[in-house]
Design a binder for these strands. Structure first.
Ligand SMILES: [Zn+2]
Ligand SMILES: [Zn+2]
Ligand SMILES: [Zn+2]
Ligand SMILES: [Zn+2]
Lengths: 149, 149
DNA sequence: CTAAAGATGATACACTATCTCATATGAAGT
DNA sequence: ACTTCATATGAGATAGTGTATCATCTTTAG
C-alpha cells in the first residue's frame, strides 16, 4: 500500500465521520469494521460479498449492520453505487479511483474499467433544456473480453 | 396506432418466430400472449408489472411462462434489458424506439429519455485496443426532474 | 447513577426470479 | 384416429437479496 493510499483513506474516514456527526450518529466498532473492509475490498463488491469477507476475516459484525453501514458510506460519498444490470447492487470505493466506466464481458462476467472522457458535457445542455438537473451519470459497455474471444 | 407500428410489430413477430424456430421451440398461445402484451406495454416494464398487466387483461398465462417468454424475447432481440440501478430488471421493446438513453429522477423515480449521440464512437477504439469486442452500451444519468425541482 | 438516545443482532418478512416436476399439449408417424 | 414423444405449462417450492422489527446492549448527557 502506497503512502498516498493511507492519506486517501484517512481523508475518506474524515468524510465518513463528518457525515455521521451531521446525522447525529456514532462512529461505532461495527461501522469502523465495515469502513475498513470496504476500503480494502478489491474493486467492486456486492453487499453479500462484503458479508462473506467480514466473516472470513473474523470480524464480529452482523449482516444487518453491514447493510446499514454500507448505506451510510453511500450517503457520506465514500462509496458509489453502480448498476451492472444484475440482480444485486454493486458498490466501489471512491478514494483511489479516477472517474471511470465499466465494460462487462457477457461470457465470463468480468469487468474492465476505462476512463470517463467527459461525454456528460455534450448531454448536460440537452437535459438542462428539458428542465432536468444532472447530478451524475454512468456508462456501461458490454461485449466480449480479450480472454473470451 | 399508426400503420407503421403495425408493420413494425409484424416485423418483430417474424424475428420472434425465426428465433423460436432456430431453437426448435413452438409459437404457443402462452408465448403469443406475452409477445402481445410486451408490444403493447407503454415504455419500460418490469417482469412483475407484466404479470399484473396480463392478469388485469384476463390473459390466462402463468408467471413462470411470462418470465420464460420474456427471456426468449430478449434472446430474439425483440426487447432489450436496461439496468436502472434498481433491484429488479427492466425491459423495453425495441420496435418503435430510436437509440436512446435514460435519465432518472432521484426524487420521484420517473425517467426521461434522450437520444443517443454516438459517444460509443469515441470509446470503441479505446476498448478495442484493450482487446474488448464491443457489442453495445447504455448510459444512465440521474438527477432531479423538472417537476421535482 | 439515571435516563434517553442510539446501535446491534437475530429473526421475520417482502420481493424477485428460478427451478422442479407432474400434467398438458402439439406435431409427426402409423 | 391412435400412439408416441418432445416440448410447454402451471403450481408450488426454492434461492437470493435486501429491509423491517424488536428486544437487548451501549454510549452519552445531565
Ligand atoms: Zn470474458
Ligand atoms: Zn469501477
Ligand atoms: Zn422527479
Ligand atoms: Zn427507453
Amino acid at each position: 500500500m502506497k503512502s498516498t493510499d493511507r492519506m486517501d483513506i484517512k481523508n475518506e474516514r474524515l468524510k465518513f465521520e463528518r457525515h455521521l456527526k451531521e446525522k447525529g450518529l456514532r462512529l461505532t466498532t461495527g461501522r469502523q469494521i465495515v469502513f475498513d473492509e470496504v476500503m480494502h475490498a478489491h474493486g467492486h463488491f456486492a453487499p453479500e460479498e462484503l458479508v462473506k469477507q467480514c466473516h472470513q476475516n473474523k470480524r464480529r459484525v452482523s449482516r444487518a449492520t453491514i447493510y446499514r453501514s454500507i448505506n451510510e458510506l453511500l450517503e457520506a460519498g465514500v462509496i458509489r453505487k453502480t448498476a451492472f444490470g444484475e440482480k444485486h447492487q454493486h458498490f466501489e470505493h471512491i478514494y483511489d479511483e479516477k472517474p471511470h466506466h465499466h465494460a462487462k464481458c457477457l461470457h465470463c462476467g468480468s469487468y474492465i474499467e476505462f476512463p470517463d472522457l467527459g461525454e456528460d458535457k455534450v448531454y448536460k445542455p440537452y437535459l438542462e433544456k428539458e428542465g432536468f438537473q444532472v447530478i451524475g451519470h454512468e456508462m456501461h459497455f458490454y461485449g466480449i473480453c480479450r480472454k473470451c474471444q
